[in-house]
């Protein structure tokens, strides 16, 4: 097991390197530089700015310098926020994005599993269709619609919840977590419904039923256990998706997370910031996918044996 993890970790190094290379090329291809603005910067100032940030070096030199700095843990200064380094900004934004992602995952799991399990008990009846439709709300309404809609209802009309912010007012985390999580609830519901359907047709469940156990006890004691295995393995990629997909929700709710910094950096051509956040997101995605694989191996004894 340990050697498997180690091998995977080692092989992700070239993966991350490629990601950096691709992103580096892309941002340099994007028209407009970090210092272009409506009022043109005088050429002499621009020249000095380029010198200051080493943009006048050949591109490959810049790239290897950058890689060298990153290996020493330095993501460089932000082009936009002159007095902050990219590392500082990531350090402040990452915990918020992770927290948001975690709550969203929780929302997705609670809504998803609840509706999935209910749906699986009576397949192809209204007790299947209603909860499944509810869980699909999140993938049928884009988050940039769901977010403002929830804000309008809960923030402005009935005024129960704050319209924006993160950790500034009580309960201001409710709406963003729900908005982000809703998108994954449908997948969770689908997986748990499928899983439950599979399990509930197994022989041991029939035996349990035949023994006269109440239906719900059968579900809770025997069904959930193995029926939810696919949900657990999906949690890894879902977490990765939630983290790197949080930028819309962070923008709508004014949350100072990393997704919003990334989005702004792309529009500002803040080169170092784009690269820094991309690296962090990629590492997270790789880690969560690895985690999912480990979980899968761990939960499936057949695979475990095959590895050994």
């Amino acid at each position: 097991m340990l050697s498997f993890i180690l091998k995977r970790l080692l092989s992700s190094i070239p993966v991350i390197f490629m990601v950096v290379l691709i992103t580096f090329i892309l941002v340099r291809l994007a028209p407009g530089g970090p210092f272009s603005d409506e009022r043109k910067v005088p050429p002499i100032v621009l020249e000095n700015l380029n010198k200051r940030y080493h943009l006048d070096d050949p591109v490959y030199v810049q790239f290897f310098d950058y890689i060298g700095n990153v290996l020493q843990g330095d993501f460089g200064p932000s082009f936009k926020y002159a007095n902050r380094s990219v590392s500082e900004i990531i350090y402040s934004g990452l915990p918020i994005t992770v927290e948001l992602g975690l709550y969203a995952l929780l929302v997705a799991i609670v809504i998803g599993i609840t509706s999935g399990v209910i749906a699986a008990l009576r397949p192809n009846t209204w007790q299947d269709y209603v909860p499944m439709s509810f869980s699909m709300l999140g993938i049928c309404l884009p988050s940039f619609v769901l977010g403002p809609l929830l804000i309008l209802i809960f923030g402005i009309w009935v005024q129960w919840l704050p319209v924006s912010g993160w950790g500034d007012a009580p309960f201001d985390k409710v709406l963003p977590s729900f908005t982000l999580g809703a998108a994954y609830a449908a997948y969770m519901a689908r997986l748990s419904r499928g899983g439950m359907l599979d399990v509930m047709s197994q022989d041991y469940i029939r035996t349990a039923r035949a023994k006269g156990l109440p239906n719900w006890l059968v579900v809770v004691r025997h069904g959930l256990n193995s029926g939810l295995a696919p949900v657990v393995t999906f949690a890894g990629p879902a977490a990765a998706g939630l983290l790197s997909g949080s930028f819309v929700v962070e923008s709508v709710f004014q949350i100072p997370g990393m997704g919003r910094f990334y989005l702004q950096a792309a529009f500002n051509r803040d080169y170092t910031m784009i690269l820094g956040t991309t690296i962090v997101f990629s590492v997270l995605i790789v880690l969560f996918n690895l985690l999912a694989d480990i979980l899968m191996v761990w939960m499936n004894p057949r695979l475990r044996h095959a590895r050994n």
Binding site: S12, V15, S244, Y262, S282
Partner: peptide, 13 residues
């Protein structure tokens, strides 16, 4: 590699 690109963001780029 392509999986590890934060992909919504990648499309924006």
């Amino acid at each position: 590699v392509l999986y590890a690109l934060p992909f919504a963001i990648f499309i924006i780029l």
